[in-house]
Amino acid sequence: MRRKIITFTFLIIAAVAISAAAALLGPGLGPAESARALLRLLGGGDLPREAHAILLVRLTRLGAAACVGVALATAGTSLQAVLRNPLADPYILGIAAGGGFGAAVATAAGLGGGVAAFSAINLCAFGGALCAVGVGVVVARAAGILSVHALLLAGVVVGAFFTSLILLILAIVPARDQHAVFLWLMGDLANPDITPAKVAFAAVLVGLCSALLLALARPLDLIALGEETAFHLGLRVERFKVLILACASLATAAVVALAGPIGFVGLVVPHALRRTIGPRHWPLMAAAALGGAALVAAGDTLVRTTADYFEMPIVPVGVFTALIGAPYFLAILRRRRY
């Protein structure tokens, strides 16, 4: 119990501190001026146009980071339970590769336009991501039963297939498009294509899906005990698996379409928090949402401010999270208690 309270306190403080840093730090507007401007904005006052624009960019980015973190961490937590596999992360069903393929096609074909606030790249990435999961589900479903083993295998193969298609596209498009596709594949929040309207839309979708995953924490505990056990304890297992897959996939596809595949968050955050919070999904899912948001926002703020400070090109936050996530994950694995 005490460990839980300490962990939650830490996560809340970290989330607040990181949000403040994300809003206050950066070029063009110093921390003190930013704070004054932010307070005026919150008080309903007017701001000079330049300050307003700078704050809007920072807050949009913070919102995007939070969406990405919440979606990946809650999707990862729930998939680890349903697939009963500690290696599961939001991309294990091929979502990242499917989304990447969609984005690469849109880029290579030079698709302009889009629908409402969304560019062709957003829409193709979202569609490609869901398409990848859909193929896996169709392959793994037989006689009304979705086999999670078949789903995992299908997901890995579908991912490999779409990755090959991405490489094929990269091999035949001009260098300028290659660079755009590469940047997208790294997972990046610096993309000027991330507008407040898109972030708001992603926030709604991610909010709904992640809230549902949080609400389904107890059935997730059941299914973590095994499908047959969960059935006998009173869970409609087949319906439940589809519901969880749908929530996790929609949330993940939304943030992949927004910012590209940002790596390791969905794998590392649940594992790290399970060590202190324990395996029960109600506290774990809540902590994962907080921790995921804090981690991505911290990473993004860090890469953004260091790039400004050292006047060097920005490291995509997806590369950064994978660079710190992988060694951290290995360290957890080395000291695991279960």
């Binding site: 059935p219 059941l222 973590a224 005990l225 095994g226 006998h232 304890l233 009173g234 324990g278 395996p279």
Partner: peptide
């Protein structure tokens, strides 16, 4: 209630937590 033959739990639920899951019905 059903006690299956092979039930393996790979997450470290505490015994009382796992038993409380029996109350799901």
């Amino acid at each position: 209630s059903f006690v299956p033959q092979y039930s393996e739990v790979n997450l470290p639920f505490r015994v009382e937590e796992m038993v409380m899951l029996g109350r799901y019905a």
